[in-house]
């Protein structure tokens, strides 16, 4: 679970985090582009693993997609500079810049690389890809976007995330499609304000962090592994809670962020977007429940010779996080006294 404490890797992690900060805090488009490029180049060595062919394939795919997106981004920011100077007008240029950024974050019409690549990554890298790697493109998107275009993208994201994940048996692909669905929520929060986006993004990162750590610590990659594993009932319960929370079932923490976004969407007159987001998150919730429900209730084999042992320290961490995930809404009310 914990990334190996290889000094090279630590270096690249450092650059990865720093480059995102460069990208989001620069005051020119070129600086943003530079940050994105550094980010891409630092993530490649983190992905690639000489022992695993899948990961090198993934690193190559990642490089190709991101670099093509970056080229287009560079091209269009230069074009924009030439034609429009520093005016921000909503026209096709904004759509083009937005498209390249959407490609980078793996949003819908250009999302095909995303489940493809994530299939070759470890759980930790998947977590990085699903959370941290989205920061820079999204912040850049928030600077300059064409809202009608983004609304269409939001609706497509929510539909594709729900439909695509329905038929998957790989947990990483399921998480990838759920990430696409959650991207629609994040884009919807970007429409309203950046603070809302930060709120949603932090909640989402927290929830998928727990899940990714849990999957990683048990080496779970496919649904059928959940049935065979000789898992403690409590650990299954952790899965259930966190999946329900991620799906946004009301008493849990995941509902909180979605609730706030629904609230703001309705205040800002986006009822149709809101409708699609809610309906599709129902489908998402359905396949989350389907993952855990069958292993929880119907179909669990107990193999004697494979048993999962978690270290006490890990278990403490997971249960604490899950506790926050369960009672987060109640805890959060204490902050407003």
């Amino acid at each position: 679970m914990y990334p190996s404490l290889n000094s090279n890797k630590m270096f690249f992690y450092f650059i990865l985090f720093l480059s995102t900060l460069i990208s989001i805090s620069s005051n020119s488009w070129l600086g943003c582009w530079v940050g994105l490029e550094i980010n891409l180049l630092s993530f490649i060595p983190l992905i690639s693993n000489t022992n695993n062919m899948m990961s090198s394939e993934a690193s190559l795919k990642y490089f190709l997609t991101q670099s093509i997106a970056s080229i287009n981004f560079l091209f269009f920011i230069l074009l924009k500079l030439m034609w429009m100077k520093n005016f921000m007008l909503n026209n096709s240029i904004s759509i083009l810049i937005n498209s390249s950024l959407l490609m980078k974050m793996g949003s819908t019409p250009f999302h095909f690389w995303f489940p493809n690549i994530i299939e070759g990554l470890s759980w930790f890298n998947s977590f990085i890809l699903m959370s941290w790697q989205k920061i820079a493109p999204m912040i850049l998107l928030s600077y300059y976007f064409y809202s009608k275009f983004i609304i269409i993208i939001i609706i497509m994201n929510s539909i594709i995330g729900a439909i695509g994940g329905l038929n998957q048996s790989s947990l990483r692909k399921i998480m990838a499609f759920s990430s696409i669905n959650n991207l629609s929520w994040m884009l919807a929060s970007l429409l309203i304000s950046e603070n809302l986006w930060i709120f949603y993004f932090m909640m989402y990162s927290f929830l998928i962090m727990i899940l990714c750590l849990l999957f990683n610590s048990m080496n779970l990659f496919y649904i059928n592994q959940l049935f065979f594993f000789n898992m403690n009932y409590g650990i299954k319960f952790l899965f259930l809670i966190n999946f329900l929370s991620l799906g946004g079932l009301p008493p849990f923490l995941g509902f909180y962020s979605k609730w706030i976004i629904i609230n703001f969407l309705i205040f800002n007159n986006f009822p149709m977007v809101c409708f699609f987001l809610i309906m599709m998150s129902l489908i998402i919730l359905f396949f989350y429940i389907r993952i855990i429900y069958s292993s929880f209730l119907f179909n669990n084999l107990n193999l004697k010779w494979i048993s999962i042992k978690l270290k006490n320290k890990q278990l403490f961490f997971y249960t604490l996080s899950s506790l926050i995930s369960i009672f987060g809404i109640i805890f959060s009310t204490f902050f407003f006294m």
């Binding site: 190709l64 997609t65 093509i68 490609m103 019409p109 250009f110 690389w113 493809n116």
Partner: peptide, 11 residues
């Protein structure tokens, strides 16, 4: 994978 990238360029 080529087609994905090509479709992006076409777009």
């Amino acid at each position: 994978f080529k087609i994905y990238l090509f479709s992006f360029i076409m777009w």
